[in-house]
Amino acid sequence: MLLRPLRLPLLALATGLSLGLGTGPWAWGPSALAQAQEGAEISPALSVEQARAAANRILKAVKSRDANLRYSQFSDELKAVSSPAMVASTMRTQPRLLNWTLLSVQGGLRDTTVEASLTTSRGQQDLFIVLNGEGKLSGYHLDLSDEAPSLVARKFVTALSNGHFISARSFLSLSLQREIGADRLQMRWQQLQRQTGSLVRIRKTVVAEGTGDERLVLVNTEFNRLSDSLYVILNASNEITGIDFPSEPIGPQPVR
Rank of each mutant, 00 (worst) to 15 (best):
A32H: 11
V105W: 07
V48E: 11
P25V: 00
L78S: 01
Q125G: 00
I243N: 15
L33R: 15
L3M: 05
Q191C: 07
N56V: 14
D111I: 00
Q195I: 05
P30D: 03
S18P: 13
A27T: 00
Y71D: 02
Q125T: 13
S83R: 05
P254F: 13
E147M: 07
I58P: 01
S198Y: 13
L8S: 13
H141G: 04
Q186G: 08
Q125E: 10
L6C: 13
T221I: 05
G123P: 15
N162W: 06
V48L: 05
L185S: 02
A27R: 15
G163W: 01
G20H: 06
L151K: 08
E49A: 09
M187V: 01
N56L: 05
L142R: 15
L218S: 03
Q195W: 09
L3C: 08
W189H: 03
G108I: 10
G242R: 02
V114I: 02
R122C: 08
R225M: 09
D183P: 00
W100G: 06
G22C: 09
I243M: 07
D66Q: 07
S161H: 02
T113K: 09
A51Q: 09
A40C: 07
M86G: 12
A54S: 08
S31N: 11
I129H: 02
L11W: 09
R188V: 02
G16C: 13
G163F: 00
V200T: 06
N235V: 15
R122P: 08
N162S: 12
R96F: 09
T241K: 01
E134D: 15
T119S: 13
T101L: 06
Y71G: 00
E179P: 15
D126L: 14
L118M: 12
Q190C: 00
E115A: 04
A88N: 15
S161T: 10
R96C: 14
T15L: 04
V217K: 06
L2F: 13
R188P: 02
L98T: 10
L102E: 14
S89I: 03
K204I: 01
V219W: 11
S150C: 06
T101W: 10
G16F: 08
V152L: 10
E41G: 01
L127P: 06
G24N: 01
Q35S: 04
V206C: 02
Q253G: 03
E134L: 03
S173N: 02
A45G: 12
L192Y: 06
L8C: 06
P84W: 11
T221Q: 13
N162T: 10
L10A: 03
